[in-house]
Amino acid sequence: MPGPSPELVQQLYSTPPDRFVAARDEAVAEARRAGDPATARQIARLRRPTVAAWLVNLLAIRRPDLVADLVQLAESLRSAQRELRGSRLRELSAQRRAAVGALVAEVRKLAAKESGAPSAGKLPLAEVEATLNAALSDTEVAEQVQAGRLLRAASYAGFGEVPRPQLRLVTGGEEEEEERRPRKEAGRAPAQRAPGDRAAERAAERAERAARAERARQRRALERELAKARTDQERAEGELADAAQAERDGATALDDIETELAELERRRAVAEQELSRAKLARRGAERTLTAARRRTGEVEAAMEALEAEEEGAAGTGGGEAD
């Protein structure tokens, strides 16, 4: 099935966002000139990434080895979480923080080498870091990051680690004793707390739950608005790309027509010159014909005069003989 080459897509998604649309439109025009409208349409559907997504794509394209290491670390983290291996998980979590920090530093270096990239102070490195952390926790985000075709930054709303008390239940020894100690303290707590304190704590817990629910509701509402805004943006970008392409097609058609008109004007001028030369040649031929006819008449008259003279001379000679 025809389509843009992976090299072209990689080139587009490593282009700074402020030059992405121009580069994409040029690729669309080139595909059309090559007689491949299907590929041109597929290229036109490629969407411009945000600056943060572009930085992550740049990292995946320029340093795929580092991103591969990140994906491998993510798999190790998920394995440790599934098996509830506390010590291993803490070790991997430290590696995660170090790896993400190193990748963010590498992104800063790559951006500094790109012409037209924002200055270091304007780089959305917090969004880059959030996206890399999301890739460590979400396999789908990790695949998008590794493909180098991310359109916008990602974040992870879940928990990257299993809660610590649950981990201590399976590690044994000293940590198991530490786990039992909070339960003992919790068992003694009701006798030490006044009823008013417990009521206040319950009220505070209810207020906190209500606040969390409200924040979750606001987040969902904002996510819906963001999704709608992004859809509208993509639609507007598509319409702009189509309109710009239609404008370029119209300009090309007009140029072709003007070129044809110029050629016709040139041919008309040549034809007019040839007609003028033909008229001059006809007039010259007419004058030559007139002169030839006049000369023919003169010669014919001279011949007639000569014949008459010869006939007269012949008659005179006959009379003398008689």
Rank of each mutant, 00 (worst) to 15 (best):
E91W: 13
Q192R: 15
A251E: 14
L264H: 10
G187E: 13
D197Y: 12
G238C: 04
G86Y: 05
K122R: 15
E263F: 07
A154N: 09
D36M: 04
A31D: 03
R82C: 01
E185F: 10
R108K: 11
A112E: 10
T316S: 15
K109F: 03
E260M: 08
R24F: 01
R217Y: 11
A80P: 07
E304Q: 12
E91D: 13
A142E: 02
L151E: 07
E237R: 14
S14V: 08
L306F: 10
D197K: 13
G35T: 05
A213S: 12
L240Y: 09
A130E: 12
E177S: 10
A98G: 12
A130H: 11
V299L: 13
R108I: 01
A213P: 03
G284T: 13
R62G: 09
V141T: 09
Q233L: 12
E234H: 13
R212M: 13
R62Q: 15
E177I: 11
R224P: 00
G173E: 12
E205N: 04
L103R: 01
E91C: 06
A99F: 02
M1W: 11
A111R: 00
F20S: 01
E265M: 05
G148C: 06
A147E: 12
A52D: 03
Q11E: 12
N133D: 11
A60T: 08
Q273K: 15
I43G: 01
R224Y: 01
Q146R: 15
G160F: 08
E201R: 13
E311M: 11
E114M: 10
P182V: 00
T259M: 09
L92H: 06
Y13A: 00
R97N: 10
T288P: 00
A243D: 11
P16F: 04
P182W: 08
D25H: 12
A53L: 02
R96M: 02
E175Q: 06
E174D: 10
I257L: 15
T139R: 14
A281K: 06
A94L: 08
L59E: 00
E83N: 14
A271S: 10
E265A: 08
R287Q: 05
A194P: 10
L306P: 03
A199W: 12
A291F: 09
R283N: 01
R294D: 14
R168I: 00
A22M: 04
R295W: 03
L264P: 08
P118D: 06
P64Y: 02
V145M: 03
D69E: 15
P118C: 02
R97P: 06
N57S: 03
A204H: 09
A191K: 13
A153T: 00
A23W: 05
E300L: 15
A207Q: 08
P16I: 08
P118M: 00
E298K: 14
R287F: 03
P165N: 09
V107Q: 04
A130N: 05
F20N: 02
T290A: 13
I43Q: 00
E106K: 05
A94V: 07
Y13H: 15
E177P: 06
L136S: 07
E185V: 03
E307M: 09
G238I: 02
A211P: 02
G148I: 00
